[in-house]
Nucleic acid binder design. Structure first.
Lengths: 310, 310
DNA sequence: TTGTACGCGTTATCAT
DNA sequence: ATGATAACGCGTACAA
């Protein structure tokens, strides 16, 4: 890849003339412009964006730092965000990290690069944002501590409450919630919305925290349930398989509701319904943050339940 | 984020002195060095890697351009590659693309940025590599056309053959292969290895191409099979659920073998065995390419079958 | 119509 | 021990 100076020498002109030809802003003869453009195409010249960014102080790179890659939800989310940004002329680059320390390191690295904006998906609410980020930054799912970043999130309590409403409308009342043990906004609030709405209906919340092994069979033996609200579709699929292996019919005996509507899982079976995660809305909100907004611009959509077999 | 010049002014010294302090290469008094380091820490100074790369012509960024994110296999692969590169002091950044045209565009963009190396996962064998890439480039799964890149791949024929051997050792003989209709090296060679080994054993290859909907039930009705070799774990899980829904016992009636050993899927059930995809080996090979090697350095490991319930 | 000079933030080399 | 200067590749302002 040649530089603009080399291209200028190749054409026997100065860098300034090359620049005029490339950006087509007149003040140049048809002849020289044609020659320069042809030589540029011949050598596959392309301006180095890094140099341009250094010059103009404006980057088109938006860096996303995420904790792990093997989460279908995160991948769907990143894909949508990437598309929305790409349409706005921005490039999303994704870097997975193994540890919070590594996440801090990479955020600092990209901050030093003066990227346009940063998207951070912390492992949990405890993540401390490095100080001195002077570009727009947003976090999803969990809230960062320290620094200044916009925390973009849906109304997770509403999601948890909607799950309860859905099951009750289906005539179920022994509704359990399967979730994780993680100090993360999404996990906590969704469970809170579930619990509050259960109590509002005079029902007793039953929460199963999944740890290493699936303790679902024992849980079901002790607690007679007819509905399971799972934190995500993967947990829902897990539950479905466990129930099937124990001869429990889904959704006849126990109805299952997941969340996210991850195509990877939901295309696998039509036994589980799911709550649509508002990917597009969140991506749009993030674009607003990148563009300089400091908070939510449009209200979070109300929970949308994708009903399958009931 | 302040610049080194600003830091110099803050300390009342020149940029050269700041550089000496930061890189600790002597020729500087304890006093000034201490002051500079403290001021740097105070303002969270960090050298802009983009400027350094422009200066030295050496980048630590390795760009991976992939077709889609919602593939568990790709995510596992990217995660391993990232870790291996990170240990070598390199940063992997991942950018998903929606179309081949977009892939071409992004490859050109990163080439213009003079990144250290490029990892390309083409959608199929038809992808035309843009000309003029002058950094190490490698492709996985499918081979690029045009340009110069190293195609890193395992012995896919051996994988297909190993699947047949495995089933035969289990006493199965009506072995079908479920795969995609895509002109991709991995897809084609794996199927070829399967077919060749089937014929070698005097068995008739039966290949089911999955398109939109699962036509597995009809396929099984017409072709009595007792074993299914699926191109990946997701297809295997798909097959498992379809069979279960039709009252077919796995692995008693029909045994299923997937490939990749994607934790996302294989942790979901112990009915399907799988062939371990050599993630680490491939990542190591790629690191070799990044470091200047022009081909495979170590032989591909022989197929490793992860046996579950049989 | 074209060339020249400067600055972005680094690093490296030379001179003081 | 420290400062000045050049260079990386680009864009822009100004001079010719």
């Amino acid at each position: 890849m040649i530089s603009s100076l080399e291209l200028a020498k190749l054409c026997g002109v100065s860098q300034g003339t090359v620049d005029r030809a490339l950006h087509g802003r007149g003040g140049i003869s048809q002849q020289t412009q044609k020659i320069i453009l042809e030589t540029a195409a011949l050598h596959g010249y392309r301006a180095n964006p890094a140099a341009r960014e250094l010059m103009t102080g404006q980057s088109r790179i938006v860096a996303a730092v995420i904790p792990q890659l093997n989460s279908a939800f995160l991948m769907d989310l990143a894909g949508i965000v990437k598309s929305v940004l790409y349409q706005a002329g921005l490039h999303l680059i994704i870097t997975p990290t193994d540890t919070p320390a590594e996440m801090t390191e990479l955020i600092t690295e990209f901050a030093a690069r003066r990227c346009r904006a940063m998207l951070i998906i912390p492992h949990d609410d405890g993540f401390m944002l490095p100080a001195g980020l002077d570009m727009p930054a947003a976090s999803f799912l969990s809230r960062c501590k320290g620094g200044k970043s916009v925390f973009l999130h849906t109304d997770e309590k509403a999601n948890g409450a909607a799950a309860v409403d859905y099951f009750i409308s289906q005539g179920r009342r022994n509704i359990a919630h399967i979730t994780y043990d993680r100090p993360s906004h999404a996990v906590r609030e969704r469970a809170a919305g579930y619990s509050e709405n259960m109590r509002k209906h005079g029902l007793k919340p039953q929460i199963l925290i999944v740890k290493d092994q699936s303790c679902l069979p024992e849980f079901i033996k002790n607690n007679p349930v007819d509905a399971l609200f799972c934190h995500n579709d993967w947990l829902a699929l897990n539950a479905l398989r466990t129930l099937e292996q124990h001869g429990i019919k889904v959704p006849q005996d126990i109805s299952i509701l997941g969340m996210d509507n991850s195509p990877l899982f939901t295309s696998l079976c039509d036994e589980i319904s799911t709550i649509q995660y508002p990917f597009e809305w969140l991506a749009g909100e993030f674009l607003a943050v990148v563009s300089g907004s400091h908070g939510q611009t449009t209200p979070a959509p109300t929970p949308n339940i994708i009903k399958r077999r009931t």
